[in-house]
Simulated scan of single mutants.
Amino acid sequence: MSRLAAHVRVSALLRRTHDAGGSAMVLAKGEAMGGAILVQMLDRGTPAGFCERGYGPDGVPALIMAGPADADSQTAGEYWQRRRRNDPDLWVIEVDVAAPQRLVAEIIVND
């Protein structure tokens, strides 16, 4: 089974976030087809951590929490910039919306 291209997932995430009354922006553009996507989540302005697509213990795609959970903007920026240095294909997206984890899981995890 083929996976959706990263740029398609990012576009869908931006659109769904805006449709839900939130804001979203690309902080760093990654590889269009296969780049991983790291999402910095804010719940109406309050830091809600980072997440990315990964695999659960059962081998099924899942939303995996990553990085500092409630980092201030400087710490959060340092985290994703360090990740980008190690993986220049990585997309970094910031979403600020009510219940961001649910919305991100819909787009990032599901094929």
Rank of each mutant, 00 (worst) to 15 (best):
M1F: 14
R3I: 10
L4P: 09
H7V: 14
V8I: 15
R9N: 08
S11D: 13
A12L: 14
R15W: 02
R16L: 12
T17I: 02
T17C: 02
D19Q: 12
G21E: 05
G22R: 06
G22M: 03
V26A: 01
L27F: 04
L27V: 08
L27S: 08
K29P: 01
G30H: 10
M33P: 00
A36P: 04
M41S: 12
L42R: 13
L42A: 02
L42E: 12
D43R: 11
D43I: 01
D43M: 01
R44I: 05
R44W: 03
G45N: 07
G45R: 05
T46C: 03
F50H: 08
F50A: 06
E52A: 15
G54A: 03
Y55I: 13
G59V: 10
V60D: 04
A62P: 04
M65Y: 06
M65A: 14
A69E: 15
D70K: 13
A71C: 09
A71G: 14
D72S: 10
S73Y: 07
S73R: 14
S73P: 11
Q74L: 13
Q74S: 12
T75L: 07
Y79K: 11
Y79H: 15
W80R: 04
W80D: 07
Q81V: 02
R82Q: 14
R82W: 07
R83W: 07
R83Y: 09
R85Q: 12
D89K: 06
L90P: 13
L90H: 12
V92N: 06
V95S: 08
V95P: 11
V97T: 05
A99Q: 01
R102L: 03
R102C: 00
V104S: 01
V104A: 00
A105W: 01
I107S: 00
N110M: 02
D111N: 11
